[in-house]
Simulated scan of single mutants.
Amino acid sequence: MMKRLLLATALTLMAAGSAMAQTVVIVRHAEKADASSDPVLSELGQRRAMDLAVALSDSDLTHVFTSPLQRTVLTARPAAEAHAINPEAISFEGGTEAHILRIAERIRALPADAVVLVVGHSNTVPLIARALGETGSSEMAECEYDRLTVLSVEDDGDSPAVIGRYGAPANCEQNISG
């Protein structure tokens, strides 16, 4: 309950920060069932996806972007369904850098009042935040599934962020990396 309250407060503060700012929530996909190239979510990952939907239930979510891999789509699905949104999978064609640029371009093309969820990977979440103007995001550990970054994407290119956590604390000893 406290985490949900903190997230709601962060979303409210970010949205109130500027009339011309988009609110972007960036998370890594939830825990994977195995180490295959395109796994589904584990039971713990499915619970985390539901926790994300609960954390975002009071938001005015308008758009959801994922990578084309199952683990990101499955992580986003409960939140997207709760807001009657069809998630948009952004291709990896051209590599990781092209993927990140496409996500940033799609977000910047949205209305100023958009509230966006992006579900990425440990190697893309910090890069997506930086592409949107956030300067303080740190790299993600391979086992970090509970980080939630909320950005206020400003017209001037500066995007202040609030970093929080959601769901059960990530347990690096029990999770499969990647």
Rank of each mutant, 00 (worst) to 15 (best):
K3G: 13
E81Y: 01
H63D: 15
L41S: 10
E139M: 10
L7Q: 10
V27M: 05
L101I: 02
A80C: 04
H121M: 10
P78F: 08
L69P: 01
D113V: 01
L74K: 14
G120I: 02
G45W: 12
V118A: 01
L74S: 12
S138P: 03
I163K: 08
L148D: 01
Y145P: 02
G167S: 12
T72V: 05
R106Q: 03
R47V: 14
Y166P: 05
S152C: 10
L5S: 12
S137R: 02
A49K: 05
R71Y: 11
T149W: 07
G136N: 07
I85H: 07
D60P: 01
M2F: 12
A89S: 15
I90P: 00
V162R: 02
T62D: 12
G17N: 05
V150C: 09
L13S: 08
V162H: 05
S42G: 15
R48Q: 11
A30T: 11
M1W: 08
S42V: 14
A19M: 06
G167N: 10
L132E: 01
L117C: 01
L5A: 15
V40N: 14
H121K: 04
D58F: 11
G94N: 04
I90V: 15
G157H: 08
L5T: 08
I85Y: 10
E43Q: 13
